[in-house]
């Protein structure tokens, strides 16, 4: 499915997650964040960087791992990305939605 984000055509799945990470850039992130009701600050970008690094290293994400990363506490993760932090943060970061239950 193609979607117009930040003036370019981006490939996304039916939930709005990017299907081609190479199409991601900061403008795309900001546009998706806006749709999700998140205003990106330095704190958010740090988390996004971490998530993308885990994705590149093929490490599966979980709330527990994010909390142990030293990048952000679980409490702050929920504050930064309310209503489903892992789902929202991965969508903004342009990586697939995690399949983790924890």
């Amino acid at each position: 499915m193609l979607k117009q984000i930040a003036n370019i055509e981006i490939n996304v799945n039916d939930e709005g997650y990017l299907t081609d990470f190479s199409q991601w850039n900061k403008d795309v992130a900001m546009e998706i964040a806006k749709e999700e009701g998140v205003e990106l600050t330095d704190e958010h970008w740090k988390v996004i960087d971490y998530i993308q690094e885990q994705y590149r290293n093929e490490v599966p994400l979980s709330i527990r791992k994010v909390g142990k990363s030293g990048v952000v506490s679980i409490k702050d993760f929920y504050r930064l990305f309310p209503d489903g932090p892992l789902k929202k943060a991965t969508k903004i970061a342009g990586v697939p939605k995690p399949v983790s239950c924890i």
Binding site: I63, R64, K65, G67, S73, I74, Y78, I102
Partner: peptide, 17 residues
């Protein structure tokens, strides 16, 4: 499976609201 023990799980639950 990377499941926390009961004590750590309780901390995660509290931190998650």
């Amino acid at each position: 499976l990377d499941l926390p023990d009961v004590g750590e799980f309780l901390e995660i639950l509290t931190a998650s609201g």
